[in-house]
Design a protein around this nucleic acid. Structure first.
Lengths: 187, 187
DNA sequence: GATACCCTACCGAACGGTCGGTCGGCAATA
DNA sequence: TATTGCCGACCGACCGTTCGGTAGGGTATC
């Protein structure tokens, strides 16, 4: 039994029942250990949550920076970023769900460590949109608010997406990208 | 002390700390009662949650049906619906936050009662978009997915909006409506 | 080859504390 | 006298965490 296996199991149960509704007993049972044995690998339940959050952020940041670093036109880059973000999230739904919905269960000292990382990540999106505006490709009154809208569309997906559903992550990301770039109105 | 005051206080604390992190003690303290006294007004903690969810749904449905019932062009109606939804949500942030984020803390029997109502509500949005497509005002490949995107933008607002921020609910709703209808691309 | 030692992984039992919820009774009102 | 609203005391269950101990494999010493 490794620490990573424990984190993975914990993420799965956290994403299903929520952090506070999950007991150390639940996690121990999932990895077929006694709950006392968990403390050989982790120091507290809060530490598990923080580690899961860190893992999720690291994965998303790595995947996004690949896209962001390319010298691509803003509209194409936005499409790529959306696809990268959505596919990564939906491939690791447990991690993503915990990241997006359970961060408020962190104790304050850990939140202080986590929030700056998250803010830096969200700024990537805002900057991407701002670039598009500066280069005359995008037209929008409030780039910061457009960024929030975009993250809303993408993040909310975690609340309704089911892998057995008909649509693949790529398909969804294309539909969302078309909608977000072209708008709903007929032209 | 009335039942409604208890529900209101509970909603506020639920929205702040989450359902499972909130104790009956917390709620009692907020309304300056002893914990035992709460049970004179409500039958269980779960019942409080269900009541709060019901209240939130009822409020949103009432407000939305006013807009939906009008014989207005789909694009205008969509703008109005977005504004109605967002202003109602942000005026009653506690209720809305519990509705959107805590429904999974409901015990299964109560979820079975709640989810159909929520699904019916979400179908209102999808139908509105479908109407727009049928009337040739909207252009979209997958109305159901556009509805999900729209609800994502709107619902996610509850996670970042702070009333002391610069933007009023109406302003935000107008920005989102422009973005959603026209798209981000310059034309 | 036998002995002593240590380390990793694990477990059973128990800790203090908090949880949601119950119960009998008190005081005010009608 | 009956009812309503409230409270103090209490319950069993479960919580996260700690502790002492153990099984087993490696490893250095004799």
């Amino acid at each position: 039994m490794t620490r990573d296996e424990i984190l993975e199991a914990a993420a799965q149960i956290f994403s299903q029942k929520g952090f506070h509704a999950t007991s150390m007993q639940d996690i121990a049972q999932a990895v077929r250990l006694q709950k006392a044995s968990l403390y050989h690998h982790v120091s507290s339940k809060q530490e598990i949550l923080l580690a899961v959050l860190d893992q999720a952020m690291a994965m998303l940041i790595a995947r996004m920076q690949q896209v962001m670093a390319q010298p691509t036109p803003p509209d194409v880059k936005l499409r790529q970023a959306m696809e990268a973000y959505l596919t990564t999230m939906l491939e690791h739904r447990d991690l993503a769900a915990v990241l997006l919905l359970e961060h408020r269960s962190l104790q304050p000292e850990f939140q202080a460590r986590h929030f700056p990382r998250r803010d830096r990540f969200e700024r990537l999106w805002r900057d991407l949109i701002q670039d598009g505006v500066d280069q005359g490709v995008f037209d929008c009154r409030d780039p910061s608010m457009s960024g929030r809208a975009l993250l809303g569309v993408l993040n909310w997906t975690i609340t309704w997406y089911r892998p057995e559903g008909a649509l693949a992550a790529e398909t969804i990301s294309h539909l969302f990208a078309d909608l977000f770039l072209q708008g709903l109105l007929k032209r």
